[in-house]
Design a protein around this nucleic acid. Structure first.
Lengths: 234, 234
DNA sequence: TCAAAAGTGTTTCAGGTACACCCATGG
DNA sequence: CCATGGGTGTACCTGAAACACTTTTGA
């Protein structure tokens, strides 16, 4: 265990730094969370968030991306740093400070299933979170309120949908995030006015006989509104 | 350098964890930031945020409070965790991950001057931040936008004022936070309606011949609105 | 032809914003 | 008596919320 240290840093005791990922997705019009069977002692076999340690030669953000990638195979994912959890005894295995991140993924992404299947995992509904190891439940609760707060002013709902999607799908995502029904007409009105959607001529006929028009994001308006903030209060 | 570790944690390389504090206060109707001459190598002598390391036997939050207390003598301060900064080479002295916190203090607090004076420090206006060591400038910028965001929905303006204050003082605090002028009448109207203020019968005559009424916070409404959120968008 | 989902406008109300003058007092 | 800062009310406008029926089409 060797650390390069400036002379005056030498008497500082180092700590372990871990990452924990709160992975959200929408399934069956419900907000879901991906959890894993913990494979390392202590507490192996309990349900847990996806987590691991930060390596010495990578940044904390890189570590978060790596850990998410290693287990889900997903890259370029919407990911936000949530909070640093640093209670002294939060991990019985040692003095571990954890940086929690939350991310949004499109559940339909096909390669997800494959990578995840090698580990025991499951999607759970965020309104019925089972017991989780350590302080993971606290992390999840903070992440949920962070997600909702963020979703009110940044158009992140799109991160949960495929490239092309219908108005109804988008509405259902927001209903899932905020966990309450949203008025159909007001929703359409507001989103069409926002300029976030580019209407396509294609229709998706998988859910109705009439079929419903597909849209894609206007990436430009998206980044503009992400920066400036836009009220999605429904 | 000894760490108690569960067997499977043994091959993890530990890192140093530091705290950096972004300390805001209002002076002369301007938002100010407290900075310090750095006393340790590397980079001793440059301007820096207040910072130090997390001890092995204290939580990260406790460390932040301790560090703020040691240098300013202030306790029970509004303090919020900002972000974990974890770039690999952010500190030339070693691999140091820093957890940044920002806090709001009442500049008039008399004991502050005393404690701070033993170290070289100064208040600077947030629209003219000088060069700071490491990534401290980035921290400050993130803290400012975090502060503004927070101030829009949580009544934190009060944290910057003494127990009893005038409407004009409160207005000036918000003008300082948002850095733009606010309409006097609309401001009063909204705040009086909010129930956050308890009007006193006393007047402060220090700034005008007529004198202006003093108010104090309604702690109950304050915590209620802190929880629920309240739009302070001016 | 009918069941099932998609799509469409108007009215109401609350809150935000803009704006200009009188008041009280000490010097 | 006047200069200085404190205090007050109204009109307008925008955006949010509530609300019910018509359209399309495959089975």
């Amino acid at each position: 265990m060797t650390l390069y240290l400036a002379p005056l840093y030498e008497d500082v005791k180092p700590l372990l730094i871990a990452i924990d990922c709160i992975i959200f997705g929408v399934q069956d019009a419900k907000m879901k969370l991906l959890i894993f069977k913990r494979e390392v002692e202590p507490l192996a076999g309990s349900w847990s968030l996806l987590g691991s340690f930060v390596n010495f030669e990578e940044s904390v953000d890189e570590a978060a991306e790596r850990i998410l990638f290693e287990l889900t195979g997903l890259e370029d994912i919407y990911m936000e740093q949530l909070h640093c959890f640093g209670a002294v005894n939060r991990d019985p295995g040692g003095r571990v400070v954890s940086i929690a991140y939350w991310s949004l993924i499109r559940v339909d992404q096909s390669h997800l299933e494959f990578n995840v299947r090698t580990h025991e995992s499951k999607w759970i509904s965020i309104d019925a979170i089972p017991e989780l190891v350590l302080d993971h439940r606290e992390m999840v609760e903070m992440a949920i309120s962070n997600l909702r707060e963020r979703a009110r002013f940044k158009p992140i709902g799109f991160e949960l949908l495929p490239q092309e999607f219908t108005m109804v799908q988008l509405l259902k995502v927001y209903e899932a995030i905020f966990d309450h029904p949203i008025d159909n007409r007001n929703f359409r009105k507001k989103l069409l006015k926002s300029g976030l959607l580019i209407p396509l001529t294609k229709k998706d006929k998988s859910t109705s006989k009439k079929g419903s028009f597909l849209y894609k994001f206007n990436q430009e308006t998206y980044s503009k509104l992400s920066r400036e903030g836009y009220s999605f209060g429904f």
